[in-house]
Write a protein that binds this DNA or RNA. Structure first.
Lengths: 189, 189
DNA sequence: CCGGCAGCATACTACTGCGTATGGAGAAGT
DNA sequence: ACTTCTCCATACGCAGTAGTATGCTGCCGG
């Protein structure tokens, strides 16, 4: 009758804290990423926290790193593996982003970035990465520099809006409309 | 030499609290809309607050009302006064929204709405209002129902993105590109 | 000139959260 | 077996904040 205690992951590491904090960041916002509530969720005390981190600010920095890596490595790596027609690559990339539940995390980080220069710099960097990638796709499709800039930005903002807006229709309907939207954005060539 | 004291707005009212809270909401987020710091800014104590409001939650409700009114009355009223060519009305409307510093407030409210059903309902309502308005413009321009839905959503998300993204170029350049974006979104008719 | 009330101040309790200091248990080296 | 080091618990001081209770003051009608 021993060892029936619920999961007792004593001896956890930095990443366990960061991932738990990341969840709270997305669910409640950066202001509510607090140490003691996190400790409660992880079933430890903050003695553990101050072993792995210097202070709360230290955790928030790691959080940004985590987010930045998630957002680049995961999404763009998949997208770069696509081959074939440039138009199809655009479609499959956006399809991938919208299908996955990734970019929705952006809202919390972006709201955080609005009043804090540190996340702001990171967000700008990520935005530039993604936008330049999309721009490249449009250029591959034959659009000029300026024209690609304009259309990629339209597309990028569209993807953002899809995740920031709650009036989301069921996925099949959204994907059907996505097809038409991409037609509009890639027309005129 | 009396009456030289700095502005002493004793005897303030609900609206003074709400406007101050609204500024904090946009600058710091909903979680940091706190009573005593607000009282400090208003140069009163929270005794005043609990006279005008039942509790903190009461204030946040008023805040949503305030936001909803700001976002509908102000923006849409202007837009509805525009006349002439439907395309031009679309352009002037979006021009108005982007030129003014209004929609930027959406980010804080939207982040708040993500983990709280009350603001979420309000945001959905506002989104529907704006989107149906834009949809009407496209329909006036001759697009079909489904096609207007798709294009208005592209346009709406674009306007949102312009405000949520920090990599904003100088306004003249943005407006120049806006022209081209609207051409893309209104083409094919 | 005086009662009364609107509007705010003051003083209090209770709670939450940050950071620190220190102790303790258990694994790992020797 | 004894020490050391890692990782966490415990206990503390302190600041900030929500909410309540009650006291104070100026203005306004009578």
């Amino acid at each position: 009758m021993s060892r029936v205690k619920s999961t007792r992951p004593r001896r956890l590491d930095r990443d366990a804290w960061i991932e738990a904090a990341f969840r709270v960041l997305n669910e409640k916002g950066a202001a509510l990423v607090r140490i003691e509530p996190l400790a409660k969720k992880l079933r430890v005390t903050k003695g553990s926290f101050y072993w792995h981190f210097k202070d709360r600010h230290d955790l928030l920095e790691q959080l940004l790193d985590y987010w930045a890596r998630e957002m680049t490595e995961t999404v763009l790596r998949f997208a770069k593996e696509f081959h074939g027609d440039p138009m199809q690559r655009i479609f499959r990339t956006v399809h991938e982003i919208i299908g996955r539940e990734r970019a929705k995390y952006d809202l919390a980080v972006r709201a955080w970035a609005k009043h804090d220069p540190q996340p702001r710099r990171v967000v700008e960097h990520i935005d530039n990465l993604r936008l330049s990638f999309l721009r490249g796709l449009f250029q591959d499709a034959g659009f000029g520099t300026e024209e690609s800039e304009i259309r990629s930005r339209l597309l990028y903002y569209y993807v953002m809006g899809e995740h920031f807006t709650t009036l989301a229709e069921p996925m099949p309907k959204r994907l059907k409309k996505l097809q038409r939207k991409l037609e509009i954005l890639t027309a005129g060539q």
